[in-house]
Design a binder for these strands. Structure first.
Lengths: 227, 227
DNA sequence: CCTCGATTTTACAAATCCATGACATTTTGC
DNA sequence: GCAAAATGTCATGGATTTGTAAAATCGAGG
């Protein structure tokens, strides 16, 4: 037990906040203030999980992550993307990150994701990065989808929502959680916004959107994904 | 066990309700009726968790929380924000709160968040997430139920009630406890409402609802679940 | 500044769930 | 066994939640 988590983050305040939080949870915390040293520590110390900021001096999060993967390190990486860098998620997931969190995020959300990644690692079951839902093949990392050999266009938010539901492994995701995880808590669209995105997702991936077979609604709770 | 929780809340009714609830759960409860006294007690008594109302005389929740952090207190803070003060979420987490709850909330949710914030080191008994009753398989986490291979539909309230009874591990659950835990303090349905939900649960999960084998009534007390 | 697509809001209809109270039935205490 | 209290049951109106289309807003390019 006592998993070791490496924090790679240049901002001192954020770094110490994360360190305090995680050590209070009983994790062992390592940290690095820039990309180069982060990569070095990651390779030397083989932590169980890396929290990786994107914007950093010397070596940014993408490059670091890509380099890690190139060297065949399988350590799970949770990327921290600032608001406004939302589109960077694509690059982040493409470079081999396992999950991302939009800053600012609630500590509970961070802990939940960290636990999820650690749990997966223990069970040695990789994150789902490709989904097949009713004839539609979805690549979450590359953010592409095809039906047969016709590409289907999904928006960034739609991919993000799908991803969250896929990670929930069939458990319902509340609207609040969608907002927290996909939008970041600093943005507060109406919860009805979530419903609209669900509707457009259904229009795209369900053969019969009126009787959804995969994107189920859980009345009074939220939505869930059934494979 | 026996963690100490400080409630900082100016409304007497809410304060005593929270105090009762938490002490019934076995926590030791401290409380303060305004921000100044709250801050003072927080610093002097070093509680394990603080429940912090935002709107308060003298010193509001944000200021209090920020001051706590400035003085290097790492005590977890769970903010209670009234509905409609959505923007307060931002300020709350910015000022160093760890999580927030939007009023009105169910006690079940409050307790869950509180437990989450109080160190998870004690891997407290993981809640049973799957039940088999009669021929019915119930997945509390996914909120699904199947009999054979026919899905059976249970509502959110029904799942919540089942979950509560499952947690009670065969002990009877009173109607008041149902109302508190499932409905929350802001709703006051008749206790007869509970009976109705029990009835519909029985209709769904008992082979012979007239002679329930799992969802037993304990006359004069409440209901209990027998596996 | 303009345009186009993505996102969010808004409004209303539809689906679903819930609360209530009257009445029937069962249990309890005596 | 009897009366009182507790529980079971059911219909119904109403409240809440969700689906969805259309309008408004936003934002990146041009």
């Amino acid at each position: 037990m006592n998993e070791r988590i490496l924090i790679i983050e240049d901002e001192l305040a954020m770094r110490t906040a994360l360190a305090d939080l995680l050590s209070a949870e009983g994790y062992r915390v390592l940290s690095a203030a820039d990309g180069e040293r982060g990569l070095q520590r990651a390779l030397e110390e083989k932590p169980d999980l890396i929290l990786l900021d994107i914007m950093m001096p010397k070596l940014d999060g993408f490059a670091l992550c890509a380099e890690l993967r190139r060297r065949a390190s399988a350590v799970p990486v949770l990327m921290l993307t600032a608001k406004g860098q939302v589109e960077d998620r694509v690059a982040g997931l493409d470079s081999g990150a396992d999950d991302y969190l939009v800053k600012p995020f609630s500590t509970e959300e961070l802990l939940a994701r960290a636990r999820a990644l650690l749990r997966r690692m223990e069970r040695n079951s990789p994150l789902p990065s490709k989904l097949k839902l009713g004839g539609l093949e979805i690549d979450l990392a590359r953010q592409t989808a095809v039906r047969g050999n016709h590409p289907v266009h999904l928006t960034a938010k739609e991919f993000a929502m799908l991803r969250l539901m896929a990670q929930a492994e069939g458990e319902p995701v509340t609207r609040e959680k969608f907002l927290d995880a996909v939008w970041g808590y600093a943005a507060f669209p109406t919860t009805r916004t979530v419903d609209n995105h669900i509707a457009s997702l259904r229009a795209k991936l369900e053969k019969n959107p009126d009787a959804p077979r995969h994107l189920k609604t859980v009345h009074g709770v939220g939505y869930k994904l059934e494979l």
